[in-house]
Simulated scan of single mutants.
Amino acid sequence: MDAAIVGTGITRFGMFVGTRLRKLASCAADRALDDAGLDAADVDLVVVGNAAAGLLTGQEMIRAHTALADSRVAGRPMLSVENACASSSSAVHLGILAVASGAHDTVLVVGAEKMTSADRTLAGRTLATAVDLEREGQVAPDGAARPVFMEIYAAEARAYMQRSGATPRDLAAVAAKSSHNGSLNPIAQVRDPLTVDEVLAARTIVDPLTRPMCSSIGDGAAALVLTRPELARRRGQQAVRVLASTVGAARAGDAGDVVARTARRAYEQAGLGPADVDVCEVHDAAAPAELLIAEELGLVPAGGAVALARDGAFTLGGRCPINPSGGLVARGHPIGATGAAQIVELADQLRARAGGRQVEGAGTALAENAGGSLGNGPAACVVTLLAAP
């Protein structure tokens, strides 16, 4: 594709009850512009991904304009994108299409979410709306909500354990690996590394998921600057090339294969296969998802992720490191920021700027971001493939 990333910016992820969404979004946007060496006047379009401000902060409309009202790009043409937890990767997709088509020369993409508040039940009630409420005969909860998505992920984990032979210790090892990576990431929400035994000994949320296996609510923002490779060369910018960007959607009653379908189209678009991928960021809202998604992406055969994980294939020094950022479990999961944060991490990896979590020799990277629940899997999925400068 005729698109490239020339700037990245990201805030610290965490629980910042007193910090407003606009401060987070503006900080990430300004950092991305600084990284690209550009001014607001150079930006033709701003695309903002946000999943839930309408419920979380009450800002249902003009989300982009208000989130960036205090930033340098205030007043530039803006669009808002909502696609559940895949909101900001969807925003990146639209930004890529905008520059690759020639409609715009430079696009700024921002993903931001503010999930914490004085009402500790609000985030849970909001997440419970990322399903088809009408079809399932439900209404949006007005009190403390069940952990709907952790129940879904736990059921998927139990089914995976039955068919693959994975044990609770295997699931805990994934969480421990993510916590180690998070300890190396200065913006991560969880910075304390945990052992497998510590993960297993923690409080159970929904069997077999213990607390460290589950991503937390949080606040944060991430941003990218997109342009065409020839413009980047003219400006003297280091450009991470976009090889593919594909969006998939599920429907009620389907096979739950939206991730696999979306990945296949991305590989076809890039002219690559799973064996060409050097590093991945995947949507591990619960730690066992890393194993399932590795198989859905074709990185390993069906049922083969457990054995490779036991051999260290997905660690920083392994055959194909997964979630060097710490993933959703450790870096954090401010839902509307997650997809952009994955791509920021991979762009920094491909520019050899990841510090102690750097994947040596990384040349090709894949991001998989999913959102909502529909049918037998995620409602939305975005897969992005990138190449080093």
Rank of each mutant, 00 (worst) to 15 (best):
346 L>T: 05
330 A>K: 03
265 R>A: 10
296 E>D: 09
304 G>E: 06
318 G>N: 02
322 I>H: 07
234 R>F: 00
292 L>D: 09
249 A>M: 11
304 G>L: 00
353 R>S: 02
302 A>G: 11
282 V>S: 10
295 E>P: 14
330 A>F: 08
245 S>T: 15
279 V>Y: 08
299 L>H: 01
281 E>F: 04
301 P>V: 09
308 L>Q: 15
252 A>H: 09
331 R>I: 05
251 R>V: 15
278 D>W: 04
342 Q>W: 01
344 V>T: 09
325 S>Q: 00
309 A>M: 10
304 G>I: 06
337 A>G: 05
312 G>F: 00
252 A>L: 11
258 V>E: 14
284 D>T: 11
344 V>H: 05
287 A>S: 15
293 I>T: 00
344 V>E: 11
287 A>I: 09
278 D>Y: 02
303 G>Y: 07
313 A>Q: 02
312 G>I: 09
247 V>H: 14
251 R>Q: 15
285 A>W: 03
312 G>C: 08
310 R>L: 02
336 G>Y: 03
333 H>A: 15
327 G>H: 04
278 D>Q: 12
351 R>I: 02
293 I>F: 06
276 D>K: 07
330 A>Y: 01
259 V>M: 10
239 A>R: 02
325 S>E: 09
247 V>A: 09
301 P>F: 05
339 G>M: 04
342 Q>K: 05
281 E>R: 00
295 E>N: 12
309 A>T: 07
261 R>Q: 14
303 G>R: 03
248 G>N: 02
323 N>G: 00
276 D>E: 11
317 G>D: 08
273 G>K: 06
275 A>Y: 03
245 S>C: 14
295 E>W: 03
324 P>T: 10
242 V>G: 14
246 T>G: 08
322 I>T: 10
343 I>L: 13
280 C>H: 05
273 G>Y: 00
346 L>F: 02
297 L>H: 06
320 C>L: 14
255 A>C: 09
259 V>K: 04
261 R>L: 15
317 G>M: 04
325 S>V: 01
236 G>F: 13
349 Q>I: 00
248 G>C: 07
272 L>S: 07
250 A>P: 03
244 A>E: 14
267 Y>D: 14
287 A>R: 06
239 A>T: 12
331 R>F: 13
301 P>D: 07
251 R>P: 00
349 Q>T: 06
268 E>V: 03
335 I>K: 06
246 T>Y: 00
283 H>C: 10
245 S>A: 15
344 V>C: 01
282 V>T: 15
244 A>G: 06
263 A>T: 12
287 A>K: 00
325 S>L: 08
236 G>E: 04
288 P>A: 12
270 A>I: 03
257 D>H: 13
307 A>V: 11
352 A>W: 06
250 A>R: 02
273 G>I: 07
351 R>A: 09
276 D>Y: 02
263 A>Y: 02
285 A>G: 13
277 V>T: 12
260 A>D: 07
265 R>L: 08
330 A>T: 06
331 R>A: 14
317 G>F: 02
325 S>A: 12
291 L>N: 13
258 V>Y: 05
347 A>L: 08
321 P>Y: 03
290 E>K: 10
255 A>F: 08
323 N>A: 13
327 G>W: 02
254 D>K: 03
254 D>C: 01
266 A>G: 05
274 P>E: 11
240 V>Q: 00
238 Q>F: 00
259 V>T: 14
350 L>A: 00
324 P>N: 04
301 P>Q: 03
